[in-house]
């Protein structure tokens, strides 16, 4: 056993140490200028989308567009769903890939990882804190789109009773709860990608590599999802169930579909967190 261990000994369980570590990590993640710029970029999407739809609402282009884009002019609350739909294929995975890919590799490349471990903090605990911070960032990314979408939608088009995909109208309060369900489902759908990013982040000291690998994983998963020849593996793909958030806007949401989508995310989280843990607790940290 090394000299250091006899000096430091097993980490002393200090009350609140985990909470302090988590708080400082969250402050770091959510206060970093780069991450704030990313959040602002995502928040600009509903603003831009709302503005374009507002300016074209009296032209022939009104009421057209994929997904829920065509419904926004009738009811501003759909700007939340439309913005999420627009960001889901690329912008959200990109943002989350940057944050989670940077989690461990960023510290390693800056040379600060070993100081964190000297503190002393058990590696498992540091990994958990890193994961929680990345999850918090993913949640705030989805929330940023949703909140700005709601405010912009209300300002541009007003909020009205919600017409579901089934053609039935529900009161605004019920509709808002369903849209909150959409936001929560999408946020939880990002957990698998966060776990994948965290694993890549433990593999390398080059944060850009981990970020790129995470984004590429999401994109490759999306491409595989479009190939009919691979339909057998589609239900287990990372991105396959992302668009199932539409379930919350049907007259009777099928909770099996929702649970299925979240179950697949849980599976990805379990496997890739375990991989990240195995890698991080056995790796030689030299920088």
């Amino acid at each position: 056993m090394s000299h250091a261990e006899t000096m430091v000994g097993a980490p002393v369980q200090v009350r609140g140490a985990f909470g302090r570590l988590l708080r400082s990590e969250l402050r770091l993640q959510l206060g970093r200028r780069r991450n704030l710029v990313l959040l602002a970029g995502l928040a600009a999407v509903p603003l831009l989308l709302g503005l374009v739809l507002f300016l074209t609402r009296d032209t022939d282009l009104a009421g057209q567009g994929p997904g829920f884009v065509g419904k926004v002019t009738e009811n501003g609350i759909f700007l939340v769903v439309a913005s999420i739909f627009v960001c889901l294929p690329f912008l959200l995975p990109l943002t989350i890939g940057i944050a989670s890919g940077d989690a461990v590799a960023g510290e390693a490349s800056a040379g600060t990882l070993r100081y964190l471990l000297v503190v002393p903090v058990a590696r498992t605990r540091l990994l958990v804190v890193k994961a929680l911070a990345a999850l918090a960032f993913a949640g705030s990314a989805v929330l940023a789109i949703a909140v700005v979408g709601l405010v912009a939608g209300a300002a541009f088009f007003g909020l009205h009773d919600v017409v579901l995909l089934s053609g039935d109208t529900v009161p605004l309060g019920v509709g808002a709860v369903r849209i909150a369900g959409v936001v929560a489902y999408v946020a939880l759908s990002m957990t698998g990608l966060v776990a994948v990013g965290l694993f890549y982040s433990t593999l390398t000291e080059v944060p850009v590599g981990a970020m790129a690998a995470t984004v590429v994983t999401a994109i490759v998963s999306g491409v595989l999802d479009t190939l009919p020849a691979l339909s057998a593996i589609h239900p287990w793909l990372l991105t396959h169930h992302w668009l199932d958030f539409a379930e919350f806007l049907r007259i009777e949401p099928d909770w099996q579909v929702v649970a299925g989508g979240l179950g697949v995310q849980a599976a990805w989280v379990a496997v890739f967190s375990a991989l990240a843990w195995a890698r991080f607790t056995t790796a030689d940290v030299s920088s």
Binding site: M1, S2, H3, A4, E5, V8, A10, P11, R114, L117, V118, P120, A122, R123, A270, V271, A274, L275, W277, A278, T281, T282, D284, V285, S286
Partner: peptide
């Protein structure tokens, strides 16, 4: 500077890598 030890390293590396396999 000695490598910061992974404290209480009671599991071998092989055992740790077996964990993700079990999870999968």
């Amino acid at each position: 500077s000695p490598l910061p030890p992974s404290p209480r390293r009671t599991l071998s590396a092989r055992a740790r890598w077996a964990f993700p396999a079990v999870v999968a």
